[in-house]
Simulated scan of single mutants.
Amino acid sequence: MDVDTRLLRYFLAVAEEGTLTRAAERLFVSQPTLTKQIRQLETLLGARLFSRSRAGMALTEPGRALAARLPALLTAWDQVLRETRRAAGRAARSLRVGFMASAANEATPRIIADFTRRRPGWRVEMRQAGWSDPSAGLADGDVDVALLRLPFPGQDALRTAVLFTEPRWVALPEGHPLAVRDVIPFRDLWDEPFVAAPPETGRWRDHWLAADERDGHPIRVGAVTDQPDDWLSAIANGYGIALAPASAARFYARPGVTYRPVSGVSSSRVGVAWAVADDTAPVVQDFVHACLASPRPTETEAETGTGTGTGTGTGTEATA
């Protein structure tokens, strides 16, 4: 009998979290989807794995037996996949780089150029991820390294280095009353409906709603989107506003949407992330070093959201 490893990962997440809600947030899936997958696994195995109650999900005896063996099995399988993909990348002289939206802004071409100087004959394969996967494929091993926005769910299990920060602005419908202001205090946006990432993205969604910077004020969500084009359309059509990096004014300019600086809200951080196992992988580390050596925006440029500056990147590593 063949069992999809995704079903096993879903089972293990529920076993470790104890509730479907927390497990769904960790896995970036909806709760109904997770429930369906658990039932599918139980049907395949012919055993009830959880006893369900209002208090959560408790493992049955067959569930405990499966949960005891799964971590080692999945870790071994992940290692097999990683080594196989890495061998394929070496054979093709290709590095897979996941990214979110505009990646590292104007620094991205310079990073790639620096990497190819360090690794002659190699090429970088850029793979864009939707907002439903804030790790840009790194958590699942689909890419070797990723350029993304911090924080994101699962970050603590990976290595990360901050490349630069930039202010968060607000994207508004062009005719919005606040669009005439030069700078908008964040407090003045609290009662506005926001265009948000899917709930399953957890910390990523909360960061872009500035959930921890509202003094407990409730959040209004006017629309949920997973891709930049859908995000822009929702804003232009008046379903809500959204916090965005200052650079979005350059990378995602379109009719019907205007961007304004915001005061009273923290900045956004752009980082590079890689798996702990790749601390000693020369090709991955060459890319990380190319990222850290790339110029970062000066303070003035970061405040205006323009240019890339000439300062030297000094990212800080977070241990897993």
Rank of each mutant, 00 (worst) to 15 (best):
G18V: 02
T160K: 08
V80P: 00
D156C: 03
P261N: 00
S263P: 02
G271Q: 04
D215T: 00
D114G: 06
N105V: 14
H176K: 03
Q31M: 06
F186V: 01
P255W: 00
G141P: 09
V170N: 12
R123G: 09
I241T: 04
W122K: 11
A47T: 02
T43I: 13
N105F: 12
S94R: 15
R82H: 13
T225D: 01
P177M: 08
V143P: 13
R118G: 00
R149V: 11
V262K: 09
L81G: 02
T280D: 15
A242L: 10
T75H: 15
R90T: 08
R22Q: 06
T316P: 03
S268N: 14
F11C: 04
V162D: 14
L49Q: 05
G305W: 12
A236N: 07
T310N: 14
T60K: 09
L41C: 05
A246Q: 08
P255E: 06
R250I: 14
F194R: 09
E192Q: 14
V14R: 01
P228W: 04
G271S: 04
D278Y: 07
T116W: 01
A139N: 07
G121T: 11
G315H: 04
S135D: 05
T35H: 15
I38F: 07
G309I: 02
D182L: 09
T312S: 10
D206F: 02
A58D: 14
L27E: 13
F99I: 06
A179Y: 06
R269C: 01
F287M: 07
L163T: 11
L172F: 13
P199D: 02
L292K: 05
S53G: 15
T43G: 15
A223C: 10
D182N: 12
P199G: 01
V270W: 02
Q155R: 10
G240T: 04
E213C: 06
P295W: 08
A161N: 03
R82G: 06
G46W: 02
G313A: 13
A91R: 15
A55I: 13
A76E: 15
A290R: 03
R48K: 15
A320H: 07
A104S: 12
L148K: 02
G18N: 02
V288A: 11
F50W: 09
R48T: 11
L209K: 10
S135K: 00
A101Q: 13
G63P: 05
R149Y: 12
N105A: 15
T310E: 15
V276W: 05
T35K: 13
